[in-house]
Design a binder for these strands. Structure first.
Lengths: 341, 341
DNA sequence: TTTATTTATGCAATCGTTATCGGGAACGTT
DNA sequence: AACGTTCCCGATAACGATTGCATAAATAAA
């Protein structure tokens, strides 16, 4: 894998590397003819500046790092697409890593990004990371970081989230308006911000309909890296309750599909026996049996917004930002799984 | 983002950078006490060697590049998981890029990987890339490359694929054995290797059952970057045919779900009116209406295998390899969508 | 003609690391 | 006393590109 360098050009044209370098960057102090010769030769030999040498010198890389729990999760895949689109237009490269919901992997990835001198980081923290000293430390050292979806509480930086409160409120209200009376919730780990917000929307909707909140109908899942059995168990427990819920609200892709599978296995009907609404971005929701009512998160827009904010931070290091959290609205897509009659 | 360097350690301990460097790499020619002091200090200051400086010096990066069409595609996400697992254990980093089925993006990504000095590349070529001079050129220049799933014909390098012939043969045979008589196929672009292989399996199964092959029942999709309308149109055309097929065999995730949607929209029943079998790795296949019979590709294993082969190439540059194509068997998972009675 | 100014170029340092070469000190051998 | 070993360590160049500084030549101004 030999590649041509500025030195090769200099040698070939009997110039110094400085002259070549300046010619390539179109400096005014280079003789037009020299410039032309250099450009012509560089073009012909397909010269590409070595970004590694540049990174070493400038301590930056024109690339940004993304760490998400799983790319196999449709929501994150869409977020990444949004990020890439903006990054691409602004001349940044995007490097993608997965934490697989592991704290250790998260730290390794972070380490790697830092030592590769990425200009900034976009991330959705792993569900293991209750406290995040590794991120705090980085922020304190001036690394631009934008959190997406799963965001920490107090960090002084940008955060982009879906309006989880409203999404959850809308979903719960929709269930109540369509015949459900006892709504269970299967949700993500308790300490995540998204979990709290979704819980609040759920509670407020119940309250409006005069239904008391009951902790018995809540299941937190995914502490152990989102094991399938854990989900199935949680759903089964709800089904086996003395007073069985007549609706379940699920807070993510896998919780939704897992719950659906369990309901089916118990030969219960959706929505007659148990109505179902889920936070999910899977594209096949309408092909499921029955077609699934979903709260769709604006994943692509979230990625775009986050990337724009990050670039703003990168390119204006001194600027004082308003780090108020950015909330993007979700959309309730009503299909059959949620309507009792 | 200040980081400590070998120079800082040298200064602090009144040593030369060479000594520090050697102490850190545990060289025998360093006094144990000096070594201890250096190690201790480096540990305390959380020293991390600068990989960029190393890359510049050694012209390698201990990272490998992956280019896939879309990470939002479950199959590729799983392939990547297989790759990452092996890479992680061998101390390589994985950098993921998407081509979005665009030839241009593919070339940009490739360029980027090369100039970032990745040690090797794993890729599934975009459906646009009928001829692949950009890859050929790289292979000729000695870059280790392993192709996955969508592989070019003649390149002298490793290729890892699913046994598409057998998968397709099994699926077609299964349909024929379960009451289907006229099986259409919606498949990927004609020039892709996977398309040809799947076609062959399909033809051979038909032949065994004495059914003549009829080109009219074949639709190639995805030339334009896999537009949804194209899929829907293809499915609709088949449904509108004078002699409507009583089964459709679809060759990818999106073709399968798209086709399913069209059949539904036409108020036709699956499998009674039209049976359906698809190549797909979506995890919700069993939750669809009806549960979908699928040919599942060993995506994770494909990723693992490819990564192992790549490392073999990277670490044994001189070795003469047997570049025979690696075929991994698919699994036919029978559910309800394919069985007529 | 002399001096000042402009134009075009080269030199050398820099970024972090390691490999090559070399050398001083301490010791052992004749 | 003279030489060879061994042990430990340092100076330097190199990787590719940029850039402040120096400078030669050409031109303009005095």
């Amino acid at each position: 894998m030999e590649t041509i360098t500025i030195k090769d050009i200099a040698r070939a044209l009997n110039l110094s590397t400085s002259t070549v370098s300046r010619a390539l960057r179109d400096s005014y102090e280079i003789n037009p003819e020299t410039k032309k010769a250099v450009l012509e030769y560089a073009g012909r030999m397909n010269y590409r500046p070595n970004p590694i040498a540049l990174s070493l010198k400038e301590n930056r890389s024109r690339s940004i790092g993304v760490i998400v729990p799983e790319i196999a999760n449709n929501f994150f895949a869409q977020v990444i697409n949004g990020i890439e689109e903006v990054a691409y237009n602004l001349g940044y490269h995007v490097v993608i890593f997965q934490s697989h919901e592991s704290r250790e992997r998260e730290e390794i990835n972070l380490d790697h990004l830092v030592s590769r001198k990425v200009d900034g980081i976009l991330t959705s923290v792993s569900s293991f990371s209750q406290d995040i000293p590794h991120f705090q430390d980085l922020i304190a050292r001036g690394m631009p970081i934008v959190f997406i979806d799963r965001v920490p509480e107090e960090e002084k930086t940008f955060k982009v989230v879906a309006n989880n409160y409203k999404g959850s409120y809308d979903a719960t209200r929709h269930l109540l308006e369509n015949g459900s009376k006892c709504i269970a919730q299967i949700t993500s780990p308790k300490h995540l911000s998204i979990t709290r917000e979704r819980m609040d929307g759920y509670k407020d909707a119940l309250h409006e309909f005069g239904i008391p909140f009951d902790e018995k109908y809540i299941r937190y899942c995914g502490h152990g890296g989102m094991k399938t059995e854990e989900i199935l168990e949680a759903a089964q427990e709800l089904i086996d309750m003395e007073r069985r819920p007549d609706a379940i609200f699920t807070a993510s892709d896998r919780l939704t599909t897992g719950t659906m599978a369990v309901i089916r296995k118990n030969k219960l009907r959706i929505p007659e026996d148990i109505a179902l609404v889920g936070f999910t971005n899977i594209p096949v929701a309408e092909l499921l049996d029955p077609p699934l009512t979903t709260i769709v998160q604006p994943a692509v827009e979230m990625g775009q917004t986050a990337m724009q904010l990050l670039v703003d931070m990168i390119e204006n290091p001194k600027k004082e930002f308003d780090f108020a959290i950015r909330k993007l609205d979700t959309t309730l897509v009503v299909r059959e799984s949620s309507i009792k009659k």
